[in-house]
């Protein structure tokens, strides 16, 4: 095979030093700057969120002072204490996590330890479908279908435990379809996909050697999970749970529809209640002045709480992932 005729111009530079010393094209440097700017945008937005919302909330903080943590929120009487909502956020978040974590971790273990590889994908699809349902649709279903149905169950339990010391305080009347507990259940449904998927990622990084080692000693699957998988994935799963908690606390629309819109602090879980994002969503339209500033202030508090939880959770998840990879 003969070589076709050689190139036309000389490829041998007459002045090599000059030929090699080109300046970096403007477009190349510009592109780098543009990419950097987009990266910095993330940091800028986070900072701006903090400053702009705090500014709007300043009126509330200055008017109420320490009373921002008072336990009464009554716009008509000019009282804007945030405690009922902080309480509600904590309670519904706790309920959601307590319900979602065993289920999510169970599914994650099912997918990674039990199910043959071929079945794993369809199961993952189904779990991801949970995430496709928008928050507002969960709320719609919750208030129109689920709430009225579970109301009966609440009522039965409520009358059954009436008079029983601790149980009455928790599950006794008043009961209502729209309540702390209903909100907690719906939030649990909503955070299951993310806790499951993160837990799966964490559990999948457990080295096969450890798992096989346990099996080789004659362990049953449960024993292998407790002995080999759990110690490795403890940290990462904790991080995943924290992320789920943060998600549950911030979930707005479903909560706004099914929590019952009653700013009271009560131990009765089946009673109507309120939490931070729900009251902001429900009352913002008609609020003004200190009231509106207070709602935005609640937003600032929510932002602070979720950012802290997220930073801690991401730190834990990243660190356990790095440790697995042996970095």
């Amino acid at each position: 095979m003969s070589v076709a005729t050689r190139r036309a111009g000389p490829a041998i530079p007459a002045d090599p030093a000059r030929a090699l010393s080109e300046r970096r094209p403007l477009g190349d440097r510009g592109f780098q700057i543009l990419a950097l700017a987009c990266g910095l945008l993330v940091l800028a937005i986070l900072v701006l969120i903090a400053t702009s919302t705090s500014q709007q909330a300043a009126l509330w903080f200055s008017t109420e002072g320490i009373k921002v943590f008072a336990k009464t929120w009554n716009p008509a009487a000019n009282q804007f204490g945030a405690l009922p909502f902080i309480y509600g956020t904590a309670i519904t978040g706790a309920i959601a996590v307590i319900m979602a974590v065993p289920v999510s971790v169970g599914i994650a273990l099912l997918l990674t330890q039990v199910v043959p590889y071929r079945w794993a994908r369809p199961i993952v699809y189904v779990v991801d479908l949970l995430a496709v349902v928008p928050s507002v649709v969960w709320g719609l279903w919750g208030i129109l279908v689920f709430g009225p149905w579970i109301q009966h169950i609440y009522a039965s339990i409520g009358s059954a435990v009436q008079g029983v010391p601790v149980l009455d305080d928790l599950f006794g009347p008043p009961t209502s379809g729209a309540s702390f507990f209903t909100c907690g259940i719906i939030l649990a449904f909503m955070i299951t996909p993310i806790v499951t998927s993160l837990s799966r990622e964490v559990i999948a990084t457990v080295p096969a050697i450890d798992r096989e080692g346990a099996y080789a000693l004659g362990a049953t699957r449960l024993e292998m999970i407790r002995g080999a998988v759990w110690p490795h994935s403890k940290g990462g799963v904790t991080g995943a749970v924290l992320l789920g908690l943060g998600r549950a606390m911030g979930e707005t629309i479903a909560a706004a529809l099914v929590i019952g819109s009653s700013p009271t602090i009560t131990s009765h879980l089946f009673a109507p209640g309120y939490n931070m994002p729900a009251v902001i969503a429900n009352q913002f339209g008609e609020a003004s002045g200190v009231w509106r500033s207070g709602l935005i202030g609640l937003g600032v508090m929510l932002f602070a709480i979720t950012i802290i939880i997220n930073i801690i959770a991401r730190g834990i998840v990243d660190r356990s992932a790095r440790r697995q990879r042996g970095a």
Binding site: I12, A17, L20, S21, E22
Partner: peptide, 11 residues
């Protein structure tokens, strides 16, 4: 070809 490859102004 006589030109330093690692001079500071080389692209």
């Amino acid at each position: 070809r006589g030109a330093s490859l690692y001079a500071s102004n080389v692209s």
